[in-house]
Amino acid sequence: MHNRKIRVLIAKPGLDGHDRGVKVVARGLRDAGMEVIYLGLRLTPEQIAEAAIQEAVDVVGLDCLSGAHMALFPKVVQLIREKGGNDILVIGGGIIPKKDIPKLREAGIAQIFGPGTSLDEIVQYIETYLRKSDDKED
């Protein structure tokens, strides 16, 4: 298990301004004991990937409600991997049609949390995932 706190970067790529969800999630993860950096909105995939590497985070959470997720989420993962963030867990949320989810998974977004997701579900997912990848390292 991690000795230090889990570090999470939360960001909104693209022009979408709906930030109720990300802010609630950011606060929920913080209350669950994680260290959360909320980068804000209207960001390019490049800016998010750059910050993820610089901040040496374990998890990147992306959010988009405008329908631009297919153009933006895979790009973020691609840039993070290119910059050497191979172990960073990338997850997403927003208004994401079900049929887009397999394609996003293929592109490296490990999980999509849609409307109605509870905070506990997200916390548990992150903790379980990181514990598993820690076990692998051991």
């Binding site: 693209g14 022009l15 209207r42 153009a71 933006l72």
Partner: peptide, 18 residues
């Protein structure tokens, strides 16, 4: 659409996907 609301033309890099 958001590019019109935020002052970008449709061919602006930030408008991709929107």
């Amino acid at each position: 659409h958001l590019p019109t609301q935020e002052g970008y033309d449709s061919d602006h890099p930030l408008a991709i996907g929107e």
